[in-house]
Design a protein around this nucleic acid. Structure first.
Lengths: 148, 148
DNA sequence: AAAAATAGGTATAAAAAATAACTATTACGA
DNA sequence: TCGTAATAGTTATTTTTTATACCTATTTTT
């Protein structure tokens, strides 16, 4: 069975980014299943952990999802007792998110597991290469200084 | 409006890969709209262009999608007169894919446009960095020699 | 105070991805 | 060589993800 020549696609950033994302995220997905978290849940909790009082709007910007799609995620995390919501005193439109103690406990384990996966997923890379890869990815997707 | 601290997520490969993929692919999507192609259509056509007679099974492997989801894509490309399908003489189960002349013409323009985008999307990177980034991504997602 | 913008949300639609099962053909092992 | 398993492609269907349109309450702007 002759191999398929994908050399042209492999010369494109988009193809390689997508393949790498699928590779890493499917492993992340499997690992987080133990905690009942999808990657997106993990992201929301992690941001909330490191930014107590963060608003859903801010979360949307940080992980690039649309607000209507965040609603159910937050509701479900709330129902599971992992986060709590508190209306901001200054701006009554805004609702701050906070981890409950159960949420904190879960996330300590989940972030530990994520760190382990980080090593595992990047097994083919040296630590220098891993750091370098992340730096290059950020250069790629981060808005250039001075742009909107 | 205080900025959100995403430093933890930014230390993870998966988060960065996903952000970069969204960044690049959304631009790719916009650019290919002129040709009436989504990224996945472009990939299928490009693989067919460089591998005349490729089977849908091989295409699935190359771009990591499931065969039931490829069927409609191929049907639609066929209906648009961009590809043709020919049953293999040796193995009557297999169906080889080929670009029609219209398909070839379209892809010449589309690949040209993709190359332009490549420069544009990687504007923040030097050419060396772009090449380096692609190499690191491939190291990450490609199965290690000797694994299944 | 009126108009515009913002935060969050509801309802819904569209698109993408996954699952189960079927046909036809080919390969394999007893 | 016959029966079983595997493969290529497909259909039908479901689940999941993502996008759109619109609404309310509050805040900001003019």
């Amino acid at each position: 069975m002759s191999r398929v020549d994908t050399s042209y696609l492999e010369s494109l950033l988009g193809y390689n980014c997508r393949r790498a994302t699928l590779h890493v995220l499917s492993r992340f997905f499997d690992r987080m299943a133990v905690f009942g978290l999808r990657p997106v849940d993990f992201s929301v909790l992690s941001i909330t952990m490191h930014n107590p009082g963060v608003t859903s709007r801010q979360v949307c910007g940080a992980i690039n999802i649309l607000s209507p799609n965040l609603v159910r995620i937050i509701q479900s995390l709330d129902e599971r007792g992992l986060i709590s919501r508190k209306t901001d005193a200054q701006d009554k439109r805004a609702i701050g998110l906070y981890l409950t103690s159960a949420g904190k406990k879960l996330m300590r384990d989940a972030e530990q597991s994520a760190s382990e996966l980080e090593i595992e997923a990047a097994a083919a890379l040296s630590e220098t290469e891993r750091v370098q890869l992340i730096a290059l990815l950020q250069k790629l997707y981060r808005p250039v200084d001075g742009e909107s």
